[in-house]
């Protein structure tokens, strides 16, 4: 099954390089990649426009898919998404602050967003942990939702007073891969790489935690350590992806459900499957966004919801769908 997902992802990457305002044949793309001819327009399109964007989509998709699976596992809640740790709300608040401080370019937001995501999730984890040991699934989810709502209300009060900020912010918050150059991908790549490794390391412990904390402890798991690793992975993955592309939380919410119907609930297979599915889905949504309103484009976040959600509903309704956690 993993092999099929890899094949799907490869197809998505190829399409992402080939499709756009200027359609390229797969042969042209191949030549531009293996034997770039500096004079040909195809080389410029592939290397300068579509390659950075595809790499970014690949990274963000892998990150959000894996982060979603981790988050649903740690909260044992099918409604959890990476944003539940306060990541989207923290990043949004920090971006609005950044706009207030004078950042106007998409690339200028990235460190604000990352710092905001980091601080918000540390606060959520700290409050959810309380005085006695690590957080429970319920306290983690509730603390996350409360912190998110609090930060969102601060964000909104700034935006209500300042239409100029709203004008910049509404294009960031919708979530998109466009307009980000290759430095953005390079900046977030190390965080996502570390996050993916932590996620895979966390998988066996997550399986044990699914049986309840007491059982997990009896099985020899160090519960608090496992929670810390999991949350750190989610913060790195989702924080970096949100910083780069804006909040695309929905991907992290649905992809684990899709992956669960394919590989089942074992986190050792679920996490890689969710990562691969996330990347494929994000790239395909991005490609579709370039096609439907060509030569302009529809923001990836909107495409994802408009096309991904009906697919998700079909899946939930189907016989194999709604595999419980």
């Amino acid at each position: 099954m993993i092999k099929r997902l890899v094949a799907l992802l490869a197809l998505a990457v190829a399409l992402s390089l080939a499709v756009g305002a200027q359609w390229l044949g797969l042969g042209e793309v191949w030549r531009a990649v293996v034997d770039p001819d500096p004079g040909a327009p195809a080389t410029a399109i592939v290397w300068e426009l579509r390659f950075p964007r595809t790499v970014l989509g690949l990274l963000a998709g892998l990150a959000l898919g894996a982060a979603g699976a981790l988050m649903q596992g740690h909260t044992r809640n099918p409604l959890a998404d990476p944003g539940l740790l306060g990541i989207s709300a923290g990043a949004s608040f920090a971006v609005v602050l950044g706009i207030q401080l004078g950042a106007t370019a998409l690339t200028g937001y990235i460190w604000f967003a990352f710092a905001g995501a980091l601080l918000a999730s540390v606060a959520v984890f700290g409050i959810a942990s309380g005085r006695r040991g690590g957080p429970t699934p319920v306290t983690l989810a509730l603390a996350g939702l409360a912190i998110s709502a609090l930060l969102a209300s601060f964000t909104q009060s700034i935006l209500l007073a300042d239409n100029a900020s709203l004008n910049l912010f509404r294009f960031w918050v919708v979530g998109s891969l466009s307009g980000r150059d290759s430095t953005v991908a390079a900046q977030v790549a190390p965080f996502i790489a570390v996050g993916l490794v932590l996620a895979l390391v966390n998988a066996p412990a997550l399986n044990a935690l699914g049986l309840g904390e007491d059982v997990a402890r009896a099985l020899g798991q160090r519960v608090v350590l496992a929670r810390v690793i999991g949350v750190a992975a989610v913060v790195l993955l989702a924080g970096a992806a949100t910083a780069a592309c804006g909040p695309i939380g929905f991907l992290g919410l649905i992809v684990p459900h899709v992956a669960r119907t394919v590989v089942g609930p074992d986190h050792r297979r679920l996490i890689p499957a969710a990562a691969l599915t996330g990347a494929a889905v994000l790239l395909l949504a991005d490609v579709l966004g370039r096609v439907v309103v060509s030569p302009g484009e529809l923001q990836t976040g909107i495409v994802l919801a408009a096309v991904g959600a009906p697919f998700f509903i079909m899946l939930v309704r189907s016989r194999r769908g709604a595999v419980k956690l």
Partner: peptide
């Protein structure tokens, strides 16, 4: 609940 999330997302995208 899951269907509700899906429908909610489509509508929010709108």
């Amino acid at each position: 609940v899951l269907v509700g999330i899906g429908v909610g997302e489509v509508v929010t995208a709108g």
